[in-house]
Amino acid sequence: MKHTISVLVENHAGVLARVAGLFARRGFNIDSLAVGVTDDEKVSRITIVADGSDYTLEQIEKQLNKLIDVIKVKTLSPDSMVPRELILIKINCTAKQRPEILSICELFHGKISDISANSVTIEMSDSVQNINNFEELLRPYGIKEIVRTGTIAIQKGEAAVTVKN
């Protein structure tokens, strides 16, 4: 089962290595990992999507909490979070094909971020499932390159994972 874990850490050198190393050596599988600073520049957030049983998840949470630089660990419930991923996708595209590709983009709220004679780069952000669908629709044109960020997620409503609460 996939779990989305939001981890607040001290923004120090080497913290990411500690977190990633912990997953590797304890045999926890990471599907994706995204890091960024929070509103407090001394604190970073690592969002990890990991695969494993409930036992594994409990161990992941406990072992993460043991790392001195980890301030908070929270597994987000699938029903009450907004998960998002960003994709940059470069596909073959002749002038003739542009209209149909644009219409797919429109449908998925994708944005053209770069264009050349025979290619187009589109950026789109959504849930993993919608990104996968988007990717499949564009595949027939010939994919030159795909860059995905990995999932970040935030809780629905007023709940927040912050240093204080």
Binding site: A13, G14, A17, R18, G21, R25, I68
Partner: peptide, 14 residues
């Protein structure tokens, strides 16, 4: 050494 010892320390500092 901080990297190599990481799995075996409670914490480390460079």
């Amino acid at each position: 050494i901080t990297g190599s010892a990481e799995p075996f320390v409670k914490h480390s500092y460079l």
